[in-house]
Amino acid sequence: MTLSTQLTAEEHLGPEEDAEQPGKRSSAMRRALLRPSAVLALSFLGIVALMAILAPVLTSISGSGPLEFHQDQLDPARGGLPEGRYGGISADHWFGVEPLNGRDIFARIVYGARISLTIAVAAAALTTALGVTLGVLAGFLRGVVDQVISRIMDFLMAFPALIFMIAILSAIPGGNRPLMLVLVLAIFGWPAIARVVRGQAMSVTEREFVEAARAAGASRLRIVFQEVLPNLVASIIVLATLSIPNFIATEAGLSFLGVGVQPPTASWGQMVAAAVPWYASHPLFFIFPGIFLTLTVLSFMVLGDALQKGLARGAQG
């Protein structure tokens, strides 16, 4: 998937004088991150990140791993539903257990966080690297290079991305599925970032300080790394941040459809899919992964929105 909202170069970079006011822009972005909504989003994302990092520690404390079956927690008379009124929630199973197999939901939530964040962050990093590299090349070199890269971007963005992701992943049996997800997400995700960066690079390369660098005999490589890229850093951070929730949601959707992360590896989307037949009789099995998935995506979107607004205010002075 591409970015959920494709922002124009002007929305990210702001007026032209912004390129000469990095300190003011950074200060505005810091103030934006101190807004209550941004603080709450960062706090929740910090909790989720700690859950992912400390997943083995947390599951050792809770006493259940993500692949352990607890058949003794199920009631055969109720068709394999967990015993008790709250889905088997107890001191040993903090979020209860899954029906039929008795796997611990908390353990699968924290390991699912590890999978979702790893795939999304890796895909965002690769997407940003590809998008920035090709966007800067197109915007700085222009001419034939710009035409070739722009046509590739148009071609990929014209694809119904989700359908082709499903087709590609379905055609690749076995293997390292998380790695394949990262590659597929990056292939379809980089044009959205490259298009914005291309427009910004074109704007920056027309500024007086770039012309002065050229007149002074600076090489193209030096101009790109010392004049162009430093003026795109803030907006690149915004683009990368906004891509992460999109990749989390896409990975969950692909896993929900059965072509993403494969069992028995824990995945939030896979857990939601498994919970669909049980949502009436065992709603907590559906609610817990749904809440974590929704709040994680929402928190990244709030954070990206705060960064974008801070960047815009910094551009206005």
Rank of each mutant, 00 (worst) to 15 (best):
A9T: 14
E16S: 13
G23H: 00
R25Q: 06
M29G: 02
L40D: 01
L45A: 04
I47M: 13
A49W: 02
S62T: 15
S64M: 10
S64K: 14
S64A: 15
F69A: 13
D72P: 02
Q73H: 06
P82W: 07
R85E: 13
Y86K: 00
G87W: 04
G88Y: 09
H93N: 11
I109H: 03
I109Q: 00
Y111G: 06
G112L: 09
S116E: 01
A122F: 09
G131I: 05
G131N: 05
G139A: 10
V144I: 12
F159N: 01
L162E: 07
S170I: 04
N176V: 09
R177G: 11
M180A: 13
R195H: 11
G199S: 10
A201H: 03
E206H: 08
E206Q: 14
R207D: 03
E208C: 00
A216M: 12
A216Y: 05
L229E: 03
I236R: 05
V238Y: 02
L239C: 06
A240V: 02
I248K: 01
E251Q: 15
S255K: 07
P264N: 07
Q270A: 13
M271I: 02
Y279K: 10
H282C: 10
L293A: 09
T294N: 04
T296P: 02
V297W: 05
L298M: 14
D305Q: 13
K309I: 06
R313Y: 04
G314M: 03
G317P: 03
G317F: 04
